[in-house]
Design a protein around this nucleic acid. Sequence first.
DNA 1: ACACATTGTCTGAAATATCAGACAATAACG
DNA 2: CGTTATTGTCTGATATTTCAGACAATGTGT
Lengths: 266, 266
Amino acid sequence: MSDGATGLIETEAGAGPRHGERRRGIDRVIVLLEALLRHRAPMRVGDIARMIGAPRSTTYEIVNSLLEAEMLENVGTEGYVYFGRAMHLFGWAYSHHNAHYRRIIETLDRMAAETGETVQLCGLRGNKYIVLDCRDSSGPFRISSDVGVEVPIPWTASGRLLLAHMSEEEVKDFIPPGDYKLPDGRVIAPAEFFSDVALARQQGFSETAALADRFTWCMAAPIRDGHGAINKTLCFVLPVDTPEARRSELLALLCERARALSLAGS
Amino acid sequence: MSDGATGLIETEAGAGPRHGERRRGIDRVIVLLEALLRHRAPMRVGDIARMIGAPRSTTYEIVNSLLEAEMLENVGTEGYVYFGRAMHLFGWAYSHHNAHYRRIIETLDRMAAETGETVQLCGLRGNKYIVLDCRDSSGPFRISSDVGVEVPIPWTASGRLLLAHMSEEEVKDFIPPGDYKLPDGRVIAPAEFFSDVALARQQGFSETAALADRFTWCMAAPIRDGHGAINKTLCFVLPVDTPEARRSELLALLCERARALSLAGS
DNA sequence: ACACATTGTCTGAAATATCAGACAATAACG
DNA sequence: CGTTATTGTCTGATATTTCAGACAATGTGT
């Protein structure tokens, strides 16, 4: 896919393709890791340098440091690098540091085992939707999606729930205009999206059929934090042709489990 | 490898804590993350600074950068930080980037589901043993251990397998002398350990009873890479009083699954 | 109330990490 | 076989980042 390798990943305004931009090593590391995450495949040092807009010599220096720390590792025979073991360990520590997240993961496991369907834990990252964790369907035709990849919020059922605390005006300011355009070219009318959000807030769950792609039915239920806000959602990704009876059964299960995971003060 | 870069810096005659050691931001980051992993709990910035031997001002600078990148995140009300969401995403990417690791994880899941016992994936990190991933027993008395924590190799069943490619001489050089001492004070005779390693190599599995602690029976089987070398092991952690019949059944399962995961070129 | 420890934020100054560019050694391509 | 694009490693110079220390604002204990 044309990943639009603009070369410059500028979080801040200004700063065009200035030649003499000297940057801090730490920032290079951060940008590098995020670029690698987006790319989702091992890369060569030269490509990394181009992608993050850093000089080759610097990139080699940094990559070697990270390799030594096992935050990156060599993969394949020729110069490719990707995330290393240390990242796995750090990530594991993150997922298990608090009891709540552990409970969520156990629920994810149990639901996947019980239903055999694809289950996901979703949340926001900035103004995008991401899958935080998932258990893929065990069936022969598995619908899977990558953890950590940023997706426009309007494409997803979870997204509608995750915006439930916002007013229509806030939502309008929050979603980049281009994000209403679906991958197949259709465009969601913002007004329709706002009412979807309102509906999701009211019913306490959200469903989408064949939205971001032709073959999936998604259903999401909110996991609320201590203040009742929705930080994360639990969701099923089903084949669109799943019978209605089965769907409503799964929806009930989803809502029940999500509620059980919510911390809402009694 | 052991370039003596980190850890205790006493290269010169100067005994005191060298005051003017200026270090690179990247290296600070690496040391910081590793310290956090070892500590296994959120820390305050001041404590981090002390633990990694960095000035407070520098530590604040670095921590803030990492917070912004979500590699760390604030936890609790007052100044505690721990690993952040981005780490989870990077780690997930690591675990899923290659088909082999994915298969291993699926096996882990399946074995845990089938047996209800604690299953672990283990490996080496430097000259220590670590748990790379695990599925905890679902029973009321779960025996669990933390992923990523370094443990002396002689304490473990897996460790005996993971050294199988070494000669006795190499093993002797590899294991730090203090690592033969068990947590309860007993000391494993090196000669005994060497013969354990040889036995493990010969039978293709390894077992320990009440070694690192009084109440566990561990059994490990090797996962071999394309060259037949043992990089990782699969293992069960059982209560010591597990009946012999059950144990041998589980051992058979363990060996079978580990063999299925091995890449040994036919 | 006091003394004492800690946090988070700022400074200026000095040590150095980042950078551009050159280099040989392969690889890719027509 | 030349031509062109890579890769990985070095170098010296300077723009930057790390660092020590000071600061006010909170805690903590007696």
